[in-house]
Write a protein that binds this DNA or RNA. Structure first.
Length: 358
DNA sequence: AAAGCGTGGAA
DNA sequence: TTTCCAAGCTT
């Protein structure tokens, strides 16, 4: 959809982007879409977009550098070992992204000749690519016009138009408004400019309107309270769940398990735990019946939808191998186990306790 | 279609 | 300290 509003927004925004764009490892210089074998080519754009889902740029950069050094292209990633992929992602969160990334790379190799498809519709069929990521890749990596809407764009557009309808009901209207200001050329730069603007100028709190290239037509700015937008529905309180983590040691090793493929922390190496529930489960779910010693410390961790408070139970074990899938991992190398942060922190507490194997 | 899904930066 | 929320996707 081409239109007349676009130049009022797109032209000054693109001029600002040409002068102020951040230098990022996956970003081509402003002005032209990345060639297929470019350092900012489709593989790196895809990888960066998935890593950036709900994750800030500064957090992503070191993961992106490590990842691309290990797996520089679709072919190498498609051939990668699943466990190593999950370890490389450990600490970044939302682990379904890593599982889907691997599925996606294999699908690209098996079904698309080793090249990422260049249309939104085809991109949407690849695991881990949704509406936002498909549009972003089509625009940024392939130079297509696509309507790219992420959280930054939602905030910028809601302020530009001073939209009163609360999130998330307003999403379709914001998408339509974004369509109306997206230019026919340089849609990828436009999208990145909107996101740069949202993260650096049009911030959730204390937006820097004096530095904003599109403050002129901004309705929220004219009202004098841009931070009021986007209007949001009231949010729910996060419940507390309680559990126990188990630190079972044998000589200088600790017993680690792998969590089920689906669900919370799916597919990740982990300390054994019991159930996480409203009431403390004590030693329910212990890997073996042993003389468990409960540490004075507890481990707490905030997840998206609940707060976890875990008791820490330690025991030495000289008996048979515990039942179920698992491995005795050298405690000295625990940091190379690829544990999610919630377990990595607990492991540190166990080792500082020093009572068992630490 | 509402809920499940991690972690850390910033104020 | 708490609170918000970040380049969302899946079921």
């Amino acid at each position: 959809m081409s239109n007349k509003v676009s130049p009022q927004i797109a032209a000054p925004l693109l001029a600002w982007y040409d002068a102020e764009a951040r230098v990022l490892p996956w970003r081509a210089p402003p002005g032209s879409p990345a060639p297929a074998n470019d350092p900012a080519g489709p593989y790196r754009v895809w990888l960066s977009e998935v890593m950036l889902q709900q994750t800030q740029v500064a957090t992503v950069i070191p993961y992106f550098e490590r990842w691309t050094a290990r797996w520089p292209d679709f072919a190498s990633l498609a051939a990668a070992d699943d466990a190593e992929v999950m370890s490389m992602w450990a600490g970044l969160g939302y682990y379904a992204r890593a599982r889907n990334l691997l599925k996606g790379a294999r699908a690209v190799v098996a079904e698309h000749g080793g090249r990422l498809p260049d249309t939104e519709a085809a991109l949407l069929t690849i695991p881990g690519i949704g509406a936002y990521t498909a549009a972003a890749i089509a625009a940024i990596a392939f130079g297509r016009r696509a309507v790219v809407v992420d959280g930054n764009v939602e905030r910028v557009v809601a302020r530009l138009l001073a939209i009163e309808t609360p999130m998330p009901a307003v999403k379709p209207a914001i998408r339509a408004a974004t369509d109306s200001i997206t230019p026919d050329v340089r849609a990828g730069d436009f999208a990145q400019a909107m996101m740069d603007l949202g993260s650096r100028i049009c911030t959730p709190r204390n937006p820097k309107c004096l530095l904003c290239p599109i403050a002129g037509p901004c309705a929220a700015r004219m009202e004098g309270a841009p931070e009021r937008y986007p209007v949001k529905a009231a949010k729910k309180v996060r419940p507390v769940r309680r559990g126990t983590m188990f630190w079972l040691t044998h000589e200088d090793r600790v017993w680690l398990v792998r969590r089920p493929e689906k669900g919370l922390l799916g597919g990740m190496r982990a300390l054994p735990t019991g159930p996480w529930q409203d009431t403390p489960p004590a030693l329910t779910g212990a890997p073996v019946a042993a003389d468990w010693r409960v540490l004075p410390a507890t481990a707490t961790h905030g997840f998206t939808h609940f707060e976890l408070v875990c008791a820490l139970a330690a025991a030495r074990w000289d008996g048979h191998t515990p039942p179920g899938e698992g491995e005795w991992w050298p405690i000295a190398d625990i940091e190379s186990a690829g544990l999610p942060t919630v377990f990595a922190r607990a492991a540190k507490l166990f080792r500082e306790d020093g009572g068992c194997g630490g």
